[in-house]
Design a protein around this nucleic acid. Structure first.
Lengths: 147, 147
DNA sequence: CTAAAGGCTGACCCGGGGGTCAAGGTCAAA
DNA sequence: TTTGACCTTGACCCCCGGGTCAGCCTTTAG
């Protein structure tokens, strides 16, 4: 399929597809006339890319994830290039992000329902245990939100 | 407290604090010498801001959230300015983000453990139900990930 | 043959979230 | 009084994820 078709099928713009390619996330074949040709799996792949990018991961992050997500066929553990540990760290970061977002959601829901949450100083759970002087930038993904 | 103290206490840079203020997220008092003075609640507030920004929300989003999260005291439903509906939409978006991230995590965990996920074409659940021709950009927060 | 639609590259621009000077004012301790 | 730490504003820069436009080529339809 051509780039326009893929764009329509996957719900991203043509420009974004070229950008993904430039970032090393896609490698379409090239016809003799220079046109990009994508195979069927590209639709799912692009959706995954967009999903990750829109959830705060960088293109570089996505490069790491893709081999584990491609084609609807989960690649086997050790076959997943960044090797288990790297992916494990990503998973841990994901868990934390999920927990944080859940906390925000709970706070908002509480605000909506008017149920008084008892003296919750901050959304961060360890708010009271911090030591002044330790400069601790947020350990989670510090650059996610560009989507 | 002065800006440097707050920076150390909350784990963000001085620059970021000034930026937050410029974005209307903080309104510290000013001493006669021009120095910013923050009250104790600012630490929790800044943590909330950083938490939201690092999870893909824009400064504008955060402006909307803050009145509902301030001071560890959840404001009552209707007292929360953006009025229930706006916050409800945010909550819905949050739920979706959480679900998406959970899906990514599950995929990665599956890849790690080698458990074969049966023919899951894409992380998006409705992948097979899309109609070509309908340009459907991702409905969730389309600009979150800059964190 | 021509027009319309789609593809190509390259370039510039934007907004968000800051980093990093520069040039100067303030305050506390020595 | 001087030094050093801390504060102020303003300016410029960067990356990221694209949007948009220009200029050109190709392919299909009429």
């Amino acid at each position: 399929m051509l780039i326009g078709e893929l764009a329509r099928a996957s719900g991203v713009t043509v420009r974004a597809l070229r950008y993904y390619e430039q970032q090393g996330l896609l490698e379409p074949e090239r016809a003799v006339n220079g046109y990009r040709h994508y195979d069927g799996g590209a639709v799912a792949k692009v959706r995954n890319i967009q999903l990750l990018l829109s959830n705060g991961f960088t293109a570089q992050d996505v490069r790491g994830f893709l081999p584990c997500l491609d084609d609807g066929e989960v690649s086997l553990g050790p076959a997943c290039p960044p090797s288990v540990e790297a992916v494990s760290r990503k998973v841990a970061a994901l868990e934390q992000r999920i927990a944080e977002l859940s906390a925000v959601r709970d706070r908002l829901v509480a605000a909506l329902t008017g149920s008084a949450t008892p003296r919750q100083a901050a959304l961060t759970e360890n708010a009271t245990t911090r030591q002044p002087g330790t400069i601790a930038r947020h350990p989670a993904y510090t650059r996610p939100a560009h989507d």
